[in-house]
Design a protein around this nucleic acid. Sequence first.
DNA 1: TAGAATTTGCTAATATATTAGCCAGCCAAT
DNA 2: ATTGGCTGGCTAATATATTAGCAAATTCTA
Lengths: 157, 157
Amino acid sequence: MSHKLAYRNLPLLFLRAREELLQHFRPIINHFGLTEQQWRILRAINEVDQLEPRELCEICQILSPSLTGVLSRMEEMGLITRTRMQEDQRRLLIRLTPKAEKLVAELGPLIVEQYHYLEEAFGQELLEELYRVMDKVIAAERAPVRQVKLPERTTAD
Amino acid sequence: MSHKLAYRNLPLLFLRAREELLQHFRPIINHFGLTEQQWRILRAINEVDQLEPRELCEICQILSPSLTGVLSRMEEMGLITRTRMQEDQRRLLIRLTPKAEKLVAELGPLIVEQYHYLEEAFGQELLEELYRVMDKVIAAERAPVRQVKLPERTTAD
DNA sequence: TAGAATTTGCTAATATATTAGCCAGCCAAT
DNA sequence: ATTGGCTGGCTAATATATTAGCAAATTCTA
């Protein structure tokens, strides 16, 4: 047994914290036959009417190859439509169907209500602190992060 | 287009923030032919000599069905061994092979060095704040979170 | 304006995530 | 000893994540 590293696994802590939150939303989302990713997409498009896949990738934190499949399934479910742009035949426009809009109208208030319960248990201060700290991490306003120089591999595969 | 929800998508913010961090570690981990999950497991076992699958599930935030596959592949790669416990034939003990220990000895210092670079760019205060806030979210010391009552589905599948 | 870069969305292959469910081993109460 | 409940790890089926790479459309550049 070697010794522990000097730093606790921070990305893992993020994962646990996220799971702690998501645990309270998952039942709502699943109740309506949606996956987390599908709900992220519905919610994102709902805020702006329409989005292109590459925008959805960035906003919803889903890589392009994954998004292709998610959108296909959502199209089959009758939740979204894909329209190719005339000006640029490469690009697509993703929109919600009336069915999806109805779904968001049902789901949205429940999500908001659950946030209230979270605020009730976590405390408003902690919740605000979370938003604030997350934004700090995500914001690009910082010195660039240096990257460790990778050595030659000595261990065999 | 409906209106936005009252709360920003907090789990999504966690996802983005995590990605922001992980982006700087992924190259290191991949350089040694490991996946994120495999590194989580190596690191966890390395700290305590041996662990059972159910412990790994909780520590590494990996569900049992996923872990089964991850461990199988790691066994094939010669990184871990699976030993069935005599006292309880259901349980397993997962240990690192010398090859894995060597790998951790190479990888660990690079990870630590990268944390230094992160600290350099993010600032020590932010990094400490992150650890503190994550622990607060994960800690079970709080009022139980009430759960929204789910209505009957009105929207067709 | 032809050809080289770039962009956009895609497929393919593999690894992991999620949900449901199974089965052997253990344990407690009969 | 036997039954019923529980636990630990597993399989199966589907969805998503990750990496590599591709083809068509567009843009840039000589």
